[in-house]
Amino acid sequence: MVGRSMELRSETPASGASSNAGVVPGRLARFVRSQSPLHWLLSLIVLVVAIELIRSVSTNENFEWGVVGDYLFSHSILMGLLRTLELTVIAEFVGYVLGALLAIMRLSGAPLAVAASWFYVWFFRGTPLLVQLIFWYNLGALYRHISLNIPFGPALFSADANSVITPFTAAILGLGLNSAAYMAEIFRSGIQSIHHGQSEAALALGMSRKQMLRHVIMPQAMRVIIPPASNELIGMLKYSALVSVLAYQDLLYSAQIIYNRTYQTIPLLIVVSIWYIVVTTVLTIGQSYVERHFSRGIRQSRQRRSVSRGAGTSTDRPAAPATAAPIT
């Protein structure tokens, strides 16, 4: 399992581009404009490497592009893709809801809630996701029966653990509960990034804590929360490939079933990669739309001048007491 921090770094394209050249972006920009010999040399290297790469990929027969084409839209691959999407959406939903709850507990100030939230994050961030997945899958070894009771009352729900814990439920539990720990920290940092003057202004107007959170804090915190939360969702899409160890037929496992039979390992992994990249691209586009929605009032400073100009100067003056409307 790849560490989360490494994953984050590899998903930031901008940092990769500038570190390649070994100069800070600002200097690089100036240097490109000056078009020195080094600029031409760098461009030449990039061009040569790119041509060489394309040539090798297209001419190496071991890639078996024909096989890739055969399986790209095959029924079992598409079914696997569907299951991967289903798993990603449900597990991330669990992660978002539980994460938000954990963040609110952590910020509530109630000692037991704070401790419980802290403990949860500590535990689920402290153990590998792969271990958690296998652990949930083997829950039946720990508890034979799973039941939901009213405290000291009758059971609402009771079942044999082995029938409840299918590869699917183990995958949802493993992925969702793990993601909740990360989401809790993302929500918490987002909420804490909002200046306390905002909550004071809301409270002074007579808003309850719930109204303040919903109408004042969260809409602003979302701007901070969305980029890492999107990262988490895109990460979830790919971490879900881990459930192939539980023999759940997601995208990767569907491909594995095929290449275990046909030994066309590389082309089928390419098929899988293509689908992951397609879905990631769609999610990234969606992210930019959501980000735009939540940056209302933040990115509009450029319009400032036009608004000031649009209104006459005579209106930009307090009404004289004589003509002022009475306070109602």
């Binding site: 200046h195 003057g197 905002q198 202004a201 809301a202 809409p219 602003q220 939540f294 009032g297």
Partner: peptide
Amino acid sequence: FQSFNLFPHM
């Protein structure tokens, strides 16, 4: 308030 504290998203 001294620092206005308007809600910037509205």
